[in-house]
Design a protein around this nucleic acid. Structure first.
Lengths: 358, 358
DNA sequence: TTGTAAGCGTTATCAT
DNA sequence: ATGATAACGCTTACAA
């Protein structure tokens, strides 16, 4: 049986109250007493019972982190960022991975983190009003990534800006026929991010005087495979795009795969730009919009720290900048785009780079 | 203030003991009473205080998971596997990400999970004897991935088998000069995995009658960049390898990058095989040794479940199989390997595929 | 089947 | 500066 505060108190010949004070570094303990208590605790290799402590104090020393998918690159990076600052402040991290729809639902009906955590960090979830009310009912500070929820602390990137930059980059390269591989246009739960990015795409095109063509918007559901299908669909249009903006790097990877399998290359045949700056983007030489991922996690954790210490400050909102990273998959538009989908590829034109695929 | 068990007891007109029994589905509660209690709890939207419950019962309902790096693909996959089965059994997951050396040390000196968890899952850590004793002192069941620790439950792959298969694959393709990009040969903390794989590499070569050449073993420290450097080093040998076994896909990715930057391709110039079947491996068409990643996490969690429920069974050890996945980066050895490191590349030989890089 | 009451190991409020 | 002691909210013998 592990030593309790009573054992320490006896050994140091003081009361349990004094032990508690001494161990937590509270004032009103003489140096000599504190010394004795510390030694006694050391000798008994005593450690406080977190549960007893929580029960008595009402604080848990734990922050809940709700993640849609721990095993996706983006979330695992954010999680690492959160962890690093929580850890530095001796707060425990209770992970709740939503994964599939069943677990998601269960989470919001049963609120299993209720009374277990001092605060909550929620990553990128589309929250129905009912759900955000359920969260609010936990009566702890909440920091949210991406989605904006009333009463919650908030970190996000400027999605409109990032998407606009991506599309402008393509336009500046001379492209006029620009496709977009979107995330989840009709998601019933209502992620706002895809909507904002899509709107930016349309707006920038309009500003450039390019007519809107719904055929150029194809859903890719954030996965490599769906991104690949989306690209295939774009390439089979009567008039395929010469450049494509995929709103996640994963989907862009899929798009590149499709190009490769069709014997085409970026940017010679089609320019491709992604979003995120996934670790693999550099490897594939993908032009993309970078966002500081782990950093956003750190910011969320810092907000929680503020909320926990700083009395009742107002929740803040932080918007972190994105950055265009130009790599090898975007390039100037060709004057006469080949119609590669219907007729056999022509040989390389004399005034162009060779586009022969191996 | 949230409702307590007393409030429910009063409302249902029973004692707190009965409420406790009814809510936990224990026997010896009449159907009518249980019904009343459930309704009362519902009406007060009561939920038990996990801390009070833990304090009284001695169980925490929480499993600690110690991870070297949450943000690496492999660990995040394993974590997802663990989470899914823990979640299904209503156990909470307390995440402890070690990350850098400071946190690692702090973890083992302070044992912050002591008294906080019913069991522990430790991923792929090299444990000194002092450290594994520290873990054992927590007196909870422990399941370990990779490393084998006395008294602990254990899941791993057959590293010798996997590495042997990789090297044999290359030998079967006719390669005789085979390099290996290793993980961390001189790691003071003593990961066993790299040692086992390296040993397998040497053994298989010896069995094939190929002389051992220390220059062909180059460390890559599990990262893309270091893997890239390692490949560069191999290619600058007086007599470079015609095939390379990288003991992680990440390092293989780096190796491929180096090839690409030098205007070489796999498998025409050098065959490359990795290990893991990282999600990006398919994208890069990398031949590799696949291991079931999330599945290992599930197995670990299952072992914990067994340990928690099944009295004092003996800890089991599970070895899961690996699988050779042949993709496009390995191919038959050329009869006259070009000496691409010193002289300018010759044009394609008439009886070979074109190896012209674009 | 149900109730009583003694813990569980702290923290926090008052005294002293 | 230190000590008693009442919470904190539940579980679990033991009694009825």
């Amino acid at each position: 049986m592990a030593a309790s505060i009573m054992d320490v108190a006896r050994r140091a010949e003081v009361s349990t109250a004094t032990v508690s004070r001494a161990l937590r570094g509270l004032p009103n303990v003489s140096a000599a007493t504190r010394e004795r208590v510390l030694r006694a605790a050391e000798e008994l290799s005593y450690s406080v019972s977190p549960h007893a402590s929580s029960l008595a104090s009402g604080r848990t020393g734990t922050v809940g982190v709700v993640v849609p998918f721990v095993n996706r690159w983006f979330y695992s990076q954010v999680l690492a960022g959160i962890d690093s600052v929580l850890r530095a402040h001796d707060l425990d991290l209770l992970l709740y991975n939503l994964g599939d729809e069943r677990v998601h639902e269960r989470f919001f009906t049963r609120m299993p983190l209720r009374r277990r955590v001092d605060a909550l960090i929620v990553l990128n979830l589309p929250l129905s009003t009912a759900e955000s009310e359920a969260l609010a009912s936990m009566e702890v500070p909440i920091a949210v990534l991406g989605t904006r929820v009333p009463g919650c602390w908030h970190v996000s990137i400027d999605n409109a800006e990032g998407a606009s930059t991506a599309v402008r980059h393509l336009i500046n390269l001379g492209h006029r026929r620009i496709g977009m591989i979107t995330a989840a246009p009709g998601d019933p739960r209502g992620f706002t991010t895809p909507i904002v990015r899509q709107h930016a795409y349309r707006t920038v095109l309009a500003q450039a005087g390019i007519a809107y063509d719904p055929d150029l918007e194809v859903p890719g559901h954030l996965s490599i495979d769906e991104g690949a299908s989306a690209m295939a669909q774009l390439l089979s249009l009567p008039e395929p795009p010469t450049a494509v903006f995929a709103e996640s790097d994963q989907m862009a990877f899929g798009a590149l795969r499709t190009l490769g399998r069709m014997g085409l290359t970026a940017p010679d045949d089609v320019s491709v730009i992604g979003f995120d700056d996934h670790e693999t983007a550099e490897l594939l030489d993908l032009t993309t919009i970078a966002q500081p991922v782990a950093h956003q996690g750190e910011l969320l954790a810092r907000q929680i720290l503020d909320a926990l210490s700083g009395g009742d400050e107002e929740p803040t909102r932080v918007v972190v900048p994105t950055r265009l990273v130009v790599r090898g998959t975007t390039g100037a538009a060709r004057e006469h785009p080949p119609r590669y989908h219907s007729t056999p590829r022509p040989g390389p034109e004399p005034d162009q780079h060779s586009t022969t695929a191996r």
